[in-house]
Amino acid sequence: MSEYPQNLLAQLRVVGEVDLSQRATGEPDWWPKDAPRSKRKAAKRLEAIAAELTELQERLFASALHGQLRDSLLLVLQGMDTAGKGGIVRHVMGLFDPQGVDHHAFKAPTDEEQAHDFLWRVQQRLPGPGIIGVFDRSHYEDVLIHRVQKLSSTQQIEARYPKIVDFEHALHERGIHLHKVMLHIGPAEQYARLSERLDREDKHWKYSPADVEDRLLFAEYQRAYELAIERTATVDAPWYVIPADQKWRARLCVAELLLHTLREIDPLWPKADFDVAAERKRLDATK
């Protein structure tokens, strides 16, 4: 019996210390032998699981709508510029019914958001029961970019890690299944993707001069990610470091993670709150 995808998710999940320089951004040597090893085979796998993903999401949404389940799912996507967060949203979350998905991309905080604690704006966007929430960037910017760009003091940043752990534990207690994904892209692949944005007119809108400034600090960002992952990876709120040099591989990993979580929740179709037989008679009488 195949152990895929359980062994894949076990390899992606981070426990304890992490050295990103030792984690592959392309095909890892540990990639399961029974896992798709090409873009074509990954597409076939996504096609094969799409129906199950859709049904599980609909069951989740319907059960919560009828007050028979409180669970929800929150996927946090983090990564360097060009790591593929938008592609995950389009190609993986696109498999779901939009009415059961809440996607939010966090940008630079507004004046109102800056007037509150750093977790406040995230709390406003948490998914309700039955919803799959997706954060494109998140509260982790306050320990990533703030550390690298020195937007906050070291003391302030250090104080945020335990606050994040407590916050995420509270989410777990509320029935929010939280999975944090770092899309791990290598500097060579990032250069290629940034170059493409400059070479193609239809991609100019994706390019920002600030991307080059961040690229010059690539090593500093990797260290900031290592610290954030080590300080906040818990049983209730795990981190997954996903190789992202090949977009198909990253999308496959996220899809398998979502499928595994929805299977664990195992939502049931809600029970009818009316007499089905009686309603059948009433309906048939209208022929």
Rank of each mutant, 00 (worst) to 15 (best):
E141H: 11
H172C: 01
K163Y: 08
R137H: 09
T154R: 11
P209M: 08
Q149F: 03
W248A: 11
W248G: 11
G186E: 09
G186C: 11
L194C: 06
K247H: 11
E226N: 08
H139Y: 13
F167H: 08
A210P: 00
S138T: 15
A192P: 02
S138N: 06
K203I: 10
F218T: 03
A250K: 10
Q190F: 06
P243Q: 09
A224S: 11
T154H: 12
R193G: 05
E158M: 08
V143T: 00
Y240S: 07
D142W: 00
E168S: 01
E168Y: 08
W239K: 01
K203F: 03
Y140M: 01
H172V: 04
G175T: 05
M182D: 07
V235A: 14
Y140L: 00
L178W: 02
H184W: 11
K203S: 12
F167Q: 08
Y221T: 00
A228T: 05
E189T: 15
I145H: 03
L194I: 12
K247R: 15
A159V: 10
E220A: 12
V165E: 07
Q149A: 15
I157V: 13
R174T: 08
I185W: 04
P187W: 10
L216E: 15
D236I: 01
R215I: 07
H184P: 02
F135V: 06
E220D: 14
V235C: 11
L198C: 13
E213K: 15
A224C: 05
D214Q: 11
P209I: 11
Y225P: 01
V212P: 01
A233H: 06
D166I: 00
A170S: 14
S195I: 02
I176Q: 03
E230V: 13
H204A: 15
V235D: 14
K206T: 13
H146A: 15
P209S: 04
E168T: 03
G175P: 09
K163C: 03
L151R: 15
V212T: 12
Q149E: 15
D199W: 11
I242M: 02
R197C: 08
V134I: 10
W205P: 05
S152G: 09
L252G: 07
L151H: 10
D214H: 11
R249T: 08
E220Y: 11
R223P: 02
L144N: 02
Q156L: 11
D166G: 10
D214S: 08
